[in-house]
């Protein structure tokens, strides 16, 4: 286990800067999720921590040791890749024990560690199979087994669930989290899925265009987004941004879909879509040119074309500076 520190970390490809002065402190044992839209630089940052990508400026330390110029093998890390990167010509057992074998571990030690990991991940029956003979979820587990077998200081996950179907993703999410609780190894996890980030992270780093927009616990980010980008990115459906003029305010007002009530004196929205989801009802509508989405944790009798009066719950509104988009 180890702490990880990023100080003014930069990355450029020729003249194009893709990571701008990133500062992150990850304490020992924490599960940190880097989240952001495609192309925001989160995977590049993870690869820089891994040593697979050279850094242009700044400093990366793992357990107090600057690792800028160290090869990945010397950083004592393990990484799980998006496409698992299992060696197709080796059995599950060989895949899991491969790094130990190349680090000179004895056969007994390799067998012991592989069996320990296989036991944790329920892979015992699959040890002699090749990756091609496994399902997506099983491959994912083997990739995790390969990572934990070496007992590294730091786990790095690069969108490991994006190749799985929705149901399996939820199952594997739980498994990864349980594994972290058990091993308490510092983990950096990259995803573009904010639900994954919210459910798994001790802390979330929201990135956009190579910059860190906000770092905080899932609840902090949800309750107190630092700016319009974070407010819009965290939460599903996304937060509504209502021009202040509609609510007699000078700022942009952010209201989460679940923070509306149907009451007199609210925004008069014309319903454009009603989505009943059993326990919830999602209603989309328009007020002037502004789109509004509201979610009610009950059934609402509304039809397309109806006019509803939606009133933001006063204690739950967020206000953002119209010029800079920062939280007020």
């Amino acid at each position: 286990m180890a702490s990880v520190t990023l100080r003014n970390v930069k990355k450029s490809y020729a003249a194009a800067a893709v990571i701008h002065d990133v500062d992150i402190d990850i304490p020992d044992g924490e599960f940190v999720v880097l989240v952001g839209p495609s192309g925001c630089g989160k995977s590049t940052l993870l690869r820089m921590i891994a040593g697979l990508e050279a850094i242009t400026g700044g400093e990366i330390s793992i357990d107090g040791r600057v690792v800028n110029d160290l090869e990945p093998k010397d950083r004592d890390i393990a990484m799980v890749f998006q496409n698992y990167a299992l060696y197709p010509h080796m059995s599950v057992e060989k895949n899991m024990g491969f790094s130990l074998e190349h680090r000179g571990a004895s056969k007994e030690e390799i067998a012991g560690r592989v069996n320990w990991a296989a036991d944790i991940l329920g892979l015992k029956a699959l040890l002699q199979r090749r990756p091609g003979q496994l399902s997506g979820g099983q491959r994912q587990r083997v990739a995790m087994g390969r990572a934990i077998v070496r007992d590294p200081q730091l786990f790095l996950f690069d969108e490991p669930l994006s190749n799985l179907d929705a149901k399996l993703r939820v199952v594997m999410r739980g498994e990864i989290k349980r594994l972290h609780h058990r091993l308490k190894t510092t983990t950096v996890y990259v995803t573009h899925d904010q639900v994954e980030a919210m459910t798994m992270a001790d802390r979330i780093v929201v990135m956009n265009a190579g910059k860190v927009e906000q770092i905080g616990t899932p609840i902090e980010l949800f309750d107190k987004p630092a700016n319009l980008f974070v407010a819009g990115f965290i939460g599903s459906p996304a937060m509504n941004f209502i021009p202040g003029t509609l609510l007699a305010d000078t700022a942009i007002v952010g209201v989460r879909p679940e923070h509306f009530e149907i009451a007199e004196g609210g925004l008069q929205i014309t319903v454009t879509l009603v989505e009943p989801m059993g326990s919830d009802t999602q209603i989309s509508g328009k007020v002037g040119d502004t789109d509004i989405v509201a979610v009610f944790h009950r059934r609402v009798a509304a039809n397309v074309g109806d006019v509803l009066s939606l009133k933001p719950i006063a204690t739950e509104i967020h206000r953002f500076d119209a010029a800079m988009g920062l939280r007020l």
């Binding site: 990945p72 990484m79 890749f81 496409n83 060696y87």
Partner: peptide, 23 residues
Amino acid sequence: LPVELEEAARVDGLSRFKIFWTI
């Protein structure tokens, strides 16, 4: 050949030649 296979091997501690030879 997926480049991630070689990156996984780098993380696993293999040199360039060993990546070529064993992967």
